[in-house]
Write a protein that binds this DNA or RNA. Structure first.
Lengths: 175, 175
DNA sequence: AGCAGAATGCCTAATATTTATACACTCCAT
DNA sequence: ATGGAGTGTATAAATATTAGGCATTCTGCT
């Protein structure tokens, strides 16, 4: 629950110049900036430090620019820390890659060279977007609405899918 | 819960040629194909027909290719039907636009001219991805885990945020 | 080290919700 | 028109939730 100003961000890129540039860009926005050149150290670092947000480059092997590596690390991070927002970073404005990344749960996608204001904005936004915890009943109500919508209004089917009795569904909807 | 084969898809594009092409591409994949040239008729149509999936073009005003219109309609659709997958369609492979679209909840992003196999695959995938409705208790459990994680394990705080009593939190966690 | 406040684990009794089951009614397609 | 599916409503029994309380254990702070 860090409120943007006292949050820790982790920047991962194999190029030290990029890490330095990121530090300069972000040093007045986040309380703490951690950097890594090797993505295979991300999970280890996260066990030791309370990381709130990650900016992750997508290409680490020289000569390979498919972004596949970045997607792999994205998945690894999200598997272990599903709520920590990950913003992807790439030098290639590749639509297919951006789409894949976001579909796999990235919070946003930034291309190099970045615009400092835009980068800061996207990172802050990603952090704030998952800051507030929804009340249990509100989350339940939203899920129920979605389920009913998916069943095109068929309450019996919705109840079955949700794993509750039809009457319970009626009850919950009255509130 | 239409299982891909008996699903209804709605294709929206101002160009009738595109609509015809889409029909030919999709006629053996979906049970019913609805088409619209005017996006402002989408919500009305959805009240009358059980639409399971939407393929939405992003540019409707001639000479305007920002995709802003498409994003607007995407939001309008998602506000009313947050759960119906919307796949975006555009002639311009614009990363920024794709990212905006996905962040606003689009299921996928396809560029014209499309590859028929890819289009079919993405549409089927979008449909299947939200085919399974999570059981209410599973969704609740996942949300609780996230909340506790965010409170760094402080159960009292988590309970307060979730809007339930501490004991209830214990109960729910035992299951 | 020691203290105060917070968090935990567990208890009770009063409320409330959920479940299984049932019944009459409406739609809809055969 | 008939059967199947969905709706709206009702009941009692089983469960869950709540507020409140009470020792005990952490924690942070001085």
């Amino acid at each position: 629950m860090p409120t943007t100003d006292h949050a820790t961000i982790l920047v991962v890129d194999d190029n030290p110049t990029i890490l330095t540039a990121a530090r300069f860009c972000l040093e007045n926005t986040f309380a703490r900036i951690l950097t890594l050149q090797r993505p295979d150290e991300i999970l280890t670092l996260m066990q030791q430090e309370a990381v709130d947000l990650i900016l992750l480059d997508m290409n680490f092997s020289l000569g390979v620019n498919t972004g596949r590596e970045g997607l792999m690390w994205l998945q690894a991070i999200r598997k272990r820390h599903p709520d920590i927002p990950v913003v992807l970073l790439t030098a290639y404005a590749d639509v297919e890659l951006a789409v894949k990344g976001l579909k796999q749960g990235a919070a946003d996608f930034v291309t190099k060279p970045w615009d400092n204001d835009e980068l800061r904005h996207k990172l802050k936004d990603a952090l704030e977007r998952n800051a507030e915890v929804e009340r249990l009943d509100e989350m339940e109500a939203a899920h129920i609405r979605r389920a009913i919508d998916r069943c095109h209004g068929n309450m019996s089917e919705a109840a079955k899918l949700l794993g509750v009795s039809r009457q319970t569904l009626y009850n919950k909807m009255k509130r």
